[in-house]
Amino acid sequence: MANVTENTESQRLTFWERIYLPEIARGLGLTFRQMFRPTFTRQYPEERWIPEGSYRGRPVLVLEEEGERCVACGLCSRVCPALAIEVRAGETEQEKERYPELFEINMLRCIYCGFCEEVCPEEAIVMSKDYELVFSSQEEGILGKDKLLVPVAQLQERLEFLRQWR
C-alpha cells in the first residue's frame, strides 16, 4: 500500500523510555529548574529599550541651524512604496533655493522600510529611534513639519551609522 510508513520511532526507544514515567520525571525536573532561573521580562513603561543606531524607527527630517536640509526634490515621495509622503516645494532666499512648504508623512501608511532615507540626496530624511507611536485619530497619524523636524544633534548616531555602513 502506498503512503503507509512504518513507525520506527517506537522501535528506537529503550524500555525505560517506552514506559514514559522516567522521561516525564526528567521533563518535570527541567521545568522545575527553569522556575529558579532569572526572567527575561522587561517592565516596559518603567524600563525602556534604547535601540542602536541601526534601528529603523519613525522617519524624521534633519533640522540644522539654518533650517531643514530638505530641498524638496520629491524623491522620497516618489520612492515610498506605501505612498506615505507628500512634499510641496516652495522657493527660498537661501543657497539651496528650494524648500518644502509642506512635508507630511502618514504614519498609518509608513512601513519603516527606510527607502526614503536611502534615496535622499541631501541626507535630509533619516530613520529615528522613536518607536512609541500612538494616535487617537487618523488625522493625528499624519505628521506635519512641526513634528517631523528633529535637531541634527539628536540624530548623530543614525548619521554615523549611515556613513559607516551605507
Partner: peptide, 10 residues
Amino acid sequence: KISAYIQLRL
C-alpha cells in the same frame, strides 16, 4: 505565575 516562571516570564 508558575507558568510564567517556568517560561522565564514574570
